[in-house]
Amino acid sequence: MKKLAPFLNSPDVFHLAVPAQSNLLTYSLFESAWGVTDEMLCHFKGILLGEKVRVAGWENYLGGPTHWIQLLPKLDRYRDFDWPTLDSYKGALLSYFQEESTWAIWCERDCDQIGIEKIYNDFFRAECLVDAALAYCVGGNLECPTFIAQQGPA
């Protein structure tokens, strides 16, 4: 039986920046029913986090080679990805944040419409904002926060 995406909404921007040399993440091309695609999927401990994308001009955002992951709520919810449950997804994101020393997560409900809250090295605040963003994505919250939370060098 095909798993369905738990996400109904998505912010305009929902990306995770990670060090390119991180050995905590694995990447693999998506294999659809029609063959291998060019979608490079990113996993943490077997949980699908999103798709690796290019963000022009931001290749060194974290002070060195940086990979950008478009998080699951931004992906096509009708694709036959190995969709995790909301709880396992949130758990994987937060576990990654605790295990990796440098990362950034960027969420904007409507690009360039309101100011972006910037959080540095405050895991608790980042966790609260990610929780609110994911609640919005599954339809349980009417408001989506706009923020950039970063851990590590600013």
Rank of each mutant, 00 (worst) to 15 (best):
R79P: 04
D122M: 09
N9T: 05
S10E: 07
D38M: 00
C128V: 13
N60S: 14
M40P: 12
A149E: 11
F14E: 01
K90H: 07
F123R: 10
R54W: 00
L4M: 13
R79I: 07
F123D: 14
V36T: 14
E100D: 11
D82H: 06
K118H: 14
G115K: 04
Q70E: 02
Q150I: 08
D112K: 15
L134F: 06
L94G: 04
K52G: 01
S22K: 01
K45H: 13
S32H: 02
A126W: 09
E51R: 08
E127T: 03
L86S: 13
P65C: 09
W103C: 10
H15G: 10
Q98V: 13
A132C: 12
L93Q: 10
T37S: 13
G139S: 03
V13N: 05
S101L: 03
C111Q: 03
Q150H: 15
C144I: 01
S88Y: 07
Y78I: 09
T66H: 07
V130S: 08
G139A: 04
G140I: 11
L86G: 04
K74G: 07
F7W: 12
W83H: 05
E100K: 14
M40N: 09
R109M: 08
T26H: 04
A92I: 06
G50H: 04
A5R: 00
